[in-house]
Design a protein around this nucleic acid. Sequence first.
DNA 1: GCAAAATAGTTGCTATAACAACTATTGCTA
DNA 2: TAGCAATAGTTGTTATAGCAACTATTTTGC
Lengths: 147, 147
Amino acid sequence: MADTFVNNPSFFKLDATLKKLRNYWQKMFDSRQMDITVDQWLLVENLYKHKKTTHNELARNTSKDITTISRIIELLVKKGLVKREADTYDRRKVYLQLTPDGTEKYKQVKPLVHEMRKTGWKSLTEADYAELTRILDTIYNNIPTKI
Amino acid sequence: MADTFVNNPSFFKLDATLKKLRNYWQKMFDSRQMDITVDQWLLVENLYKHKKTTHNELARNTSKDITTISRIIELLVKKGLVKREADTYDRRKVYLQLTPDGTEKYKQVKPLVHEMRKTGWKSLTEADYAELTRILDTIYNNIPTKI
DNA sequence: GCAAAATAGTTGCTATAACAACTATTGCTA
DNA sequence: TAGCAATAGTTGTTATAGCAACTATTTTGC
């Protein structure tokens, strides 16, 4: 393998792109008074799709640490967007689901997210999307999970 | 544009890939007792390349907020890897540069970083790297800086 | 059946991210 | 040249990220 890309800062480029995306999303949320953060949105979106799930599943689905999930959910519960419900049979488990306000929030934010995704992908094709997916998946799978 | 990728979670995939990379790097740093974080490393690497620079330049070069730079530099100064030096003519400016220990740290960590970059790119080609760069740059430039 | 291991989740701590507000200094302009 | 704007950097606050240690349950293995 040539040094060309071993020395090249792909980590930096990923980080810079993601940060710009995240800031753009957050500023759009703020300017429309959505009263939500980007990561809170990602959890709401996931809860909308899965209806009823646990901290653990949510962590797996969102690639977030379970402690991070625990804290974001705490904020969403305080905002009245999510409710917790203990499992009857396994008392360690807590099911999470959107409240009616949470569902309302999802429907309110969704179109804006759709627009922002279009903005980000402007001038790119479906083939580009497939390429990006392939490359990122390859990198993901190249990285050892245990070292 | 078809909905295929407007609905597709590219944000999520970028985030997941970057997080896995970051965790892998950090665990490798920890297992080799490098006593440094990933972002501290990015600043050390940058200071090695630019020899003498300011908070502001470092922020631009690393895509980090200047407040974040200020705090990471504080940690690096405490570790003895970086020293601050006031500009003689413009007393607002502070120049940053690696100490001998900082240069030593760079040389110690660099080969490991090189190895990890090879690991991440295993089974990918230079054409893949060019594609990733092109797509990420396009997304980056698609995002409005001011909203 | 009981002790140990595994699972589910929370809390403490440190680091990074970003906005707002702040000090200090320098440059600009009426 | 006085006052205001711009620049360089720091500090306060809130949020996300992840490790370690913790409680509380449930499952496993002898």
